[in-house]
Design a binder for these strands. Structure first.
Lengths: 103, 103
DNA sequence: TTTATTTACTTACTAATAGTAACTTAAAAA
DNA sequence: TTTTTAAGTTACTATTAGTAAGTAAATAAA
């Protein structure tokens, strides 16, 4: 497999990191989703990490963000079409995890 | 989702890191597979990283290792049943990558 | 007989990534 | 006047990943 041509590596770059797929999964379930909602849904992920990963996902066109210029501010995240196409992949990860991983 | 109960997080812990799923995929295709073969199959992954990830995968019972006490040494890696059950998940990642990621 | 080769690592070190805690902003409520 | 609130950012530390060189012990080549 030539450099940078591995679809698995390329995909993992998008959904790793290491919260991205959990974020995508939660947005797919609860979109439109506010920043603070995601914090509650994924308590293990710090504020800073959540912000960074959301930015990465937005740049990769997997999610889109809507900002309301109110005070205090309000943002809403939802999946793009590309993001939606990832959901079955993440669901298969979720299914496997349910079956094979114990706490 | 309570701490450490997220199946996606638990699964990613096993298949991330960031070469593990590529390693599993290659072993699934070419098992039994030697260390040096894996190096050729995954040139982006350094020797050290390959060794560390293989050790992790072995500890997680996803792969098994057979060592021949020859000189120079020879090792062979193959998937366990748990490892084999992961292959469809990794294939779905691979499929998605083929469709949605360009170099 | 000394030197080179080979495989599957390990060790020491540096670079990149993740995590923690405190700070910011500006309006509205107490 | 002080507090609260949402959605971050900043500065700093800890954990992971990556690079390069070293190790072992038996052949093979010079």
């Amino acid at each position: 497999m030539a450099k940078k041509d591995c679809p698995i590596e390329n995909t993992l770059k998008l959904i790793n990191g290491k919260w991205k797929s959990v974020i995508i999964y939660q947005i797919s379930k609860y979109a439109p989703c506010r920043f603070s909602e995601l914090q509650k849904l994924i308590p293990d992920c710090s504020k800073r990490m959540l912000a960074l990963q959301l930015k990465d996902l937005e740049e990769a066109s997997i999610i889109q963000k809507r900002v309301y210029s109110t005070v205090p501010p309000k943002t809403e995240y939802s999946l793009t079409e590309v993001g939606k196409s990832l959901v079955p992949v993440i669901k298969s990860i979720n299914q496997w995890g349910k079956k094979y991983t114990k706490k």
